[in-house]
C-alpha cells in the first residue's frame, strides 16, 4: 500500500473486519462456546436419571477415569479403526490406479467422463438411506441372498449382519464405495499437476509405466497421499450414519452378542440421546477432540506450506 493513501486505505480496511463479523459471531456462538462448554461438562457428574437430573457436580477427572476403566472406549476405537482400514486400503489402492489411468495422456481412455461421474455418484447419496438399502439388500430374504441361492453359490441364506466380519466388511465396503471416487479425483488432480517434462524425460530414458509410477508419480504425490490419508482418518473417526442405521444403533444387529460394529461416535450418540449422560459424553468428546486436533494439525502442516495462501501441493484445474 502507498503511504499517501493510508488514511483512505484504513477506512476501507475497517470493512474487512465488518465482513468478518458474521463468521466470527456465528463461529463463537455455535462452535467455540459449545466446544468450551463440552470441555467444562466433562469435569462434572451430570446425567438424566429418569425424571431427575443428577448434578452438575464437579468431579474433575472421574468421567475420564470411568471411560478408561470400563474399557469400552478401547473396543469401540478398535472397531472404528478396523472398519476404517478395511475400507481405506482398497480405496487408496484403487484410487491410485484409476488416478494414474485417468491422468496418463497415453491411455486416452474413452468415456472417462462417464466413469468419473459414476464412481463419484455414491459420495452424494444420503448415507442413512444407502445403509438402509444395504440392510434390506443383505437381509436374510433380501436380493443378494436370493441371487447367491439362485446361482447355487450357497445352500442357505447367509446372515451377513449376524457375523462379526461380514457386518464389519459391509460397513467398510460401503465406506469404500462412497469415498473411492472422491479420492480418485483428488489424486488425479494431483497427478495432473506433476510437470509433464518429468514423464517425457523418463520416456526418453526408456522407463516402463510401472517404473514411472513408482519413481516419479508416487514420490511427488506423497504430500497429497498423506493429506488424503489423514483427512480420511479424521472422517473415519466420525463414522456414524452407516453402522448406526445398519445395526439400529446397537453396534450389532443381533442383540446380546459382542458389539463389533459399534463406533466411537455411535458411543457418543448413545450418551447424548439414549442415556443422557452429559458428563461422560463430554469426556468422550474431549478425547475425540484431542485426537482430531492432533491429526488436523498434521494436515495443516502439510497443506499450508509457509505463506498460508497456498494449499497442499499443486492441485490444478482440469
Amino acid at each position: 500500500m502507498e503511504k499517501k493513501k493510508k488514511s483512505k486505505v484504513v477506512s476501507y480496511n475497517k470493512w474487512g473486519i465488518i465482513f468478518l463479523l458474521p463468521f466470527a459471531i456465528t463461529y463463537l456462538i455455535f462452535q467455540l462456546i459449545p466446544l468450551l462448554s463440552t470441555i467444562f461438562y466433562s469435569f462434572f457428574e451430570y446425567y438424566d436419571d429418569g425424571l431427575d437430573v443428577v448434578g452438575p457436580r464437579f468431579i474433575f477427572l472421574e468421567n475420564y477415569a470411568s471411560l478408561f476403566s470400563s474399557g469400552d472406549i478401547f473396543v469401540y476405537t478398535k472397531n472404528t479403526l478396523i472398519m476404517w482400514v478395511l475400507g481405506f486400503v482398497p480405496q487408496i489402492l484403487v484410487s491410485l490406479l484409476l488416478g494414474a489411468w485417468f491422468s496418463d495422456p497415453r491411455m486416452r481412455l474413452k468415456f472417462s467422463g462417464f466413469f468419473k461421474t459414476v464412481i463419484y455418484l455414491p459420495n452424494l447419496i444420503m448415507a442413512s438411506a444407502f445403509s438402509m438399502l444395504f440392510f434390506t439388500l443383505f437381509s436374510n430374504s433380501g436380493p443378494v441372498n436370493s441371487i447367491l441361492l439362485q446361482a447355487g453359490v450357497i445352500n442357505e441364506a447367509y446372515t451377513f449382519l449376524d457375523h462379526e466380519w461380514s457386518a464389519r466388511g459391509l460397513v467398510a465396503f460401503m465406506n469404500f464405495l462412497m469415498w473411492f471416487g472422491n479420492t480418485t479425483i483428488l489424486l488425479m488432480a494431483g497427478m495432473m499437476g506433476i510437470d509433464p517434462a518429468l514423464f517425457e524425460a523418463a520416456e526418453v530414458d526408456g522407463a516402463t509405466s510401472t517404473q514411472v509410477f513408482k519413481k516419479i508419480t508416487l514420490p511427488l504425490l506423497r504430500p497429497i497421499l498423506v493429506y488424503v490419508m489423514i483427512t480420511s482418518l479424521i472422517g473415519g473417526l466420525q463414522m456414524f450414519d452407516v453402522p448406526q442405521i445398519l445395526t439400529k444403533g446397537t453396534g450389532n444387529p443381533q442383540m446380546g452378542k459382542e458389539l463389533t460394529t459399534m463406533t466411537l461416535i455411535m458411543y457418543l450418540n448413545r450418551h447424548l440421546s439414549v442415556s443422557k449422560n452429559y458428563g461422560v459424553a463430554g469426556a468422550l468428546s474431549v478425547i475425540l477432540f484431542i485426537i482430531t486436533a492432533i491429526l488436523s494439525f498434521i494436515v495443516f502442516r502439510i497443506s499450508v506450506p509457509k505463506e498460508g495462501g497456498k494449499k497442499h501441493a499443486p492441485v490444478q484445474d482440469e
Binding site: 463430554g282 482430531t292 491429526l295
Partner: peptide, 16 residues
Amino acid sequence: VMTIPTQVTALGFIRL
C-alpha cells in the same frame, strides 16, 4: 479448525 468435526462439540451445542 477446518478439520475439527462438529460431532466433538455436539454436547455443548445441544446444551446451548
